[in-house]
Amino acid sequence: MALERSEVEKIAHLARLGLNEGDIPRTTETLNNILGLIDQMQAVDTSGIEPLAHPLEATQRLRADAVTEENRRAAYQAIAPAVENGLYLVPKVIE
């Protein structure tokens, strides 16, 4: 099943990736080549097989509930693109 241009645009939007208008045909073609490779999976019989999310199948360790972090705002915000009064600035969020 090949992706249409509109689907590529939708995926790019979901992933918040700006694509150049001129790149879309090429991107669509490459993605379809990759999906062609991936679709080879569909021929594999996986009935009755449990999905494997982590190779070791270990279980989650729990952390004791204690505050050990200190305020390092100045250091963290020194590398931020835009801050004011300790806040990160972004174009207005409309609710």
Partner: peptide, 9 residues
């Protein structure tokens, strides 16, 4: 999900 199953195989 299919890929995770193949991962187990």
């Amino acid at each position: 999900l299919k890929a995770q199953k193949i991962r187990r195989l």
